[in-house]
Simulated scan of single mutants.
Amino acid sequence: MTISADDSFQSVTTALAEGYMIAYPDAKIEVKNTKEDIAFLNLLNKKSNIIVMSRDLSAKEIAEYEKQIDLPFQPAKFAADAVLFVVPKESSLNSISYEDIQKELLSEDKKLIFDGTNSSNLNFVAQKFGKLPSSLNYSIISGNQNVVEQLSKYQDKIGVVSLNTFSRPYSKEAEALRAKVKVLAIEKNGKTYEPNAENLRNMTYPFTRVLYFLTSDGTFGMANGFIRYSCTQLGQIVVAKEGLQKFNLYSREVQMY
């Protein structure tokens, strides 16, 4: 089975795939790094069994999905991620306002650096401001990790990356990436929000996004088995270990004797 996932959330998708293959050793899953818009086209053309999305589909896209796939549109939500705005560690900047981000997206200075066109980060931010990605001004460094690693060369720029790029709390690689940048708090309506667990859980961080699966498989085969696994308690434990907010919360009962 093939899963198409944007670079922004490939880590959590790969972790879920590995967890599923441990639970079901006969299963073979390949996670392909695919830009979000391209992944959706791959699903419509049935080149992928499952894709991961973060932005809302338009009514036209939903209609096309239901026409091409011949299934009702039922997004399987499994995690809350976030789009982060980061600066070099040495920067004096600690926060940025929601309005200033919008201004920068319309400025010729191209101060914001995204990980590429057709990417989930760009799509989501554009959708937040009610804009088409093609109408925005920005710079590009290909790949979330590369944005973080190369940002120090551009002291006056702001990188735009996913939380999942370096959210894994027990990963030395993620720790090294976190050490390279400072995450900016977002000011909106007189309040300041950081992308912490509470603000993701309450969806109060302005750029919180919900990750969800779409599949082209209408049977009870491996694709839907993987989706069920990801959304139930075992999969949600994997999501938490990735440093993201679980979408489905399960009560924990403790019996004391």
Score class of each variant (00 low, 15 high):
Ile3Thr: 02
Ile3His: 03
Asp6Leu: 05
Asp6Phe: 07
Phe9Leu: 08
Val12Glu: 10
Thr13Val: 05
Leu16Met: 04
Leu16Ile: 05
Ala17Asn: 08
Ala17Val: 04
Ala17His: 07
Ala17Pro: 06
Tyr20Phe: 13
Met21Lys: 12
Asp26Trp: 03
Glu30Gln: 12
Val31Ser: 06
Lys32Gln: 07
Thr34Glu: 12
Thr34Gln: 11
Thr34Phe: 05
Asp37Ala: 14
Ala39Pro: 12
Leu44Pro: 09
Asn49Ala: 06
Met53Tyr: 06
Asp56Met: 13
Glu61Tyr: 10
Glu61Phe: 07
Tyr65Trp: 13
Gln68Glu: 13
Pro75Ser: 12
Pro75Gln: 10
Lys77Cys: 13
Lys77Glu: 15
Leu84Met: 11
Val86Tyr: 08
Pro88Lys: 12
Glu90Thr: 13
Ile96Val: 15
Glu99Asn: 05
Asp100Lys: 14
Glu104Leu: 00
Leu105Lys: 00
Leu106Met: 08
Asp109Met: 05
Phe114Ala: 00
Ser120Pro: 04
Leu122Ala: 02
Val125Ser: 00
Ala126Gly: 00
Phe129Asp: 00
Leu132Ser: 15
Pro133Ala: 10
Ser134Leu: 11
Ser135Gln: 15
Leu136Ala: 02
Asn137Ile: 02
Tyr138Leu: 00
Ile140Ser: 02
Ile141Tyr: 11
Val147Asn: 06
Val148Gln: 05
Glu149Ala: 13
Glu149Gln: 15
Glu149Ile: 09
Glu149Tyr: 09
Gln150Phe: 03
Ser152Arg: 07
Lys153Glu: 12
Lys157Val: 01
Lys157Gln: 10
Lys157Thr: 01
Ile158Glu: 01
Ser162Gly: 15
Asn164Ile: 05
Thr165Ile: 08
Pro169Trp: 09
Ser171Lys: 04
Lys172Pro: 03
Glu173Phe: 08
Glu173Pro: 04
Glu173Ser: 08
Glu175Thr: 07
Ala176Leu: 14
Leu177Lys: 15
Lys182Thr: 09
Ala185Cys: 03
Ala185Asp: 14
Asn189Val: 03
Lys191Thr: 05
Lys191Pro: 01
Tyr193Cys: 01
Asn199Trp: 07
Asn202Ser: 14
Asn202Thr: 14
Thr204Trp: 09
Thr204Ala: 12
Thr208Ala: 10
Arg209Asn: 14
Arg209Lys: 14
Tyr212Gly: 03
Leu214Tyr: 07
Leu214Ile: 07
Thr215Leu: 09
Thr215Phe: 09
Ser216Thr: 10
Ser216Asp: 12
Gly218Arg: 03
Gly218Cys: 03
Gly218Tyr: 03
Thr219Ile: 05
Met222Thr: 13
Leu234Asn: 15
Leu234His: 14
Ala240Ile: 11
Gly243Phe: 06
Leu244Ile: 11
Leu244His: 13
Lys246Pro: 13
Ser251His: 11
Gln255Val: 15
